[in-house]
Simulated scan of single mutants.
Amino acid sequence: MHVSLWNIDAQDMAANLSAEESAQRVLTLMLLWRHGVIKFHDTQDKVRTALPWLLKATAQSGLGWEDCEVL
């Protein structure tokens, strides 16, 4: 069993953030820290917009993404 602790909170459950604002928050923290585990809540509608936005925004960066189910 592997345990991964998130250190970048998308705050997608926060009522005052839109999906794009949540994604931009994650991107900013990724650029500052250069590594991390991102916490999105899959029960939130915002993640259906925020995550594709984030993947598209980082598509040409050479950034590596890992599936949490594989870890």
Score class of each variant (00 low, 15 high):
Val3Phe: 12
Val3Arg: 04
Ser4Trp: 06
Ser4Cys: 14
Leu5Val: 13
Leu5Cys: 10
Leu5Arg: 12
Leu5Ser: 13
Trp6Leu: 01
Asn7Asp: 13
Ile8Asn: 07
Ile8Tyr: 13
Asp9Pro: 08
Gln11Pro: 04
Asp12Lys: 06
Ala14Gln: 09
Ala15Trp: 10
Ala15Ile: 12
Ala15Asn: 12
Asn16Thr: 11
Asn16Met: 07
Leu17Phe: 08
Leu17Lys: 10
Leu17Met: 13
Ala19Arg: 06
Glu20His: 13
Glu20Leu: 14
Glu21Cys: 06
Glu21Asn: 06
Glu21Arg: 12
Glu21Ile: 07
Ser22Trp: 01
Ser22Gly: 04
Ser22Val: 06
Ala23Cys: 05
Ala23Phe: 01
Arg25His: 09
Leu27Ile: 05
Thr28Trp: 07
Thr28Leu: 01
Leu29Ile: 06
Leu29Cys: 11
Met30Tyr: 11
Met30His: 03
Leu31His: 11
Leu32Tyr: 11
Trp33Gly: 07
Arg34Glu: 14
His35Ile: 09
His35Trp: 07
His35Met: 03
Gly36Val: 06
Val37Ile: 10
Ile38Asn: 03
Phe40Cys: 05
Phe40Lys: 02
His41Val: 04
Asp42Gln: 08
Asp42Trp: 14
Thr43Ser: 10
Thr43Met: 08
Thr43Asn: 11
Gln44Trp: 02
Gln44Asp: 11
Asp45Pro: 09
Asp45Glu: 14
Asp45Ile: 09
Lys46Asp: 03
Arg48Met: 09
Arg48Glu: 08
Arg48Pro: 00
Arg48Asn: 14
Ala50Trp: 10
Ala50Cys: 02
Ala50Pro: 02
Leu51Ala: 15
Trp53Tyr: 12
Trp53Ser: 12
Trp53Gly: 09
Leu54Asp: 00
Leu55Cys: 00
Lys56His: 08
Lys56Cys: 09
Thr58His: 06
Thr58Leu: 04
Ala59Glu: 12
Gln60Ser: 15
Gln60Trp: 11
Ser61Asp: 01
Ser61His: 05
Gly62His: 00
Gly62Val: 00
Leu63Ile: 05
Gly64Leu: 13
Gly64Trp: 10
Trp65Ile: 00
Glu66Ser: 00
Cys68Pro: 05
Glu69Asn: 13
Val70Ala: 11
Val70Asp: 12
Leu71Pro: 02
